[in-house]
Amino acid sequence: MEKFPEILNHFSIDSKSKDAQTIKKTIELCEESEVKHKEKKTCVTSLESMVDFGLSVLGTNNILAITSEVQGETQASQRYTIEQVQQISDGDNMVCHKLNYAYALHYCHVGGSTRTYMVSMVGVDGTKVKAVSVCHKDTSFWNAHAIPFVVLKVKPGTMPICHFLQDDQIVFVPI
Rank of each mutant, 00 (worst) to 15 (best):
H37N: 11
H37V: 06
K38Q: 15
K38P: 06
K38G: 14
K38C: 15
K38N: 15
E39Q: 09
E39S: 11
E39M: 07
K40Q: 15
K40R: 15
K40N: 15
K40L: 12
K41Q: 08
K41W: 04
T42I: 14
T42L: 01
T42C: 05
C43I: 04
C43V: 08
C43G: 03
C43P: 06
C43D: 00
V44S: 08
V44Q: 03
V44K: 06
T45R: 02
T45Y: 07
T45V: 07
S46V: 03
S46C: 01
L47V: 13
L47H: 12
L47D: 12
L47Q: 14
L47A: 07
E48L: 01
E48Y: 03
S49K: 11
S49A: 12
S49Y: 09
M50L: 11
M50F: 06
M50C: 09
M50T: 11
V51E: 10
V51Y: 13
V51A: 07
D52L: 09
D52N: 14
D52G: 10
D52E: 13
D52P: 07
D52A: 10
D52R: 10
G54W: 00
G54F: 01
G54I: 02
G54Q: 03
G54H: 04
G54D: 03
L55C: 10
L55V: 15
L55P: 11
S56P: 09
S56A: 14
S56F: 04
S56K: 12
S56H: 14
S56E: 14
V57E: 10
V57I: 12
V57N: 10
V57D: 13
L58C: 05
G59W: 01
G59A: 00
T60A: 00
T60M: 00
T60H: 04
T60P: 04
T60K: 02
N61Y: 03
N61H: 13
N61S: 07
N61D: 14
N61C: 04
N62V: 00
N62S: 14
N62Y: 04
N62C: 01
N62F: 03
N62W: 01
I63R: 07
I63L: 11
I63C: 10
L64Q: 15
L64M: 09
A65C: 06
A65G: 07
A65I: 08
A65M: 11
I66F: 09
T67C: 06
T67I: 01
T67F: 01
T67V: 02
S68I: 02
S68Q: 00
S68D: 00
E69L: 11
E69M: 05
V70Q: 07
V70P: 02
V70K: 06
V70C: 02
Q71T: 12
Q71E: 08
Q71A: 09
Q71F: 07
Q71R: 10
G72D: 03
G72I: 02
G72T: 08
E73W: 05
T74K: 05
Q75S: 15
Q75I: 14
Q75K: 12
Q75N: 15
Q75V: 14
Q75G: 15
A76G: 01
A76C: 05
A76T: 11
S77C: 12
S77K: 11
Q78D: 02
Q78M: 01
Q78E: 01
Q78R: 04
Q78H: 04
Q78A: 02
R79N: 11
R79F: 09
R79V: 08
R79W: 05
Y80I: 03
Y80V: 10
T81C: 05
T81F: 05
I82V: 13
I82Y: 02
E83I: 05
E83N: 13
E83D: 07
E83K: 13
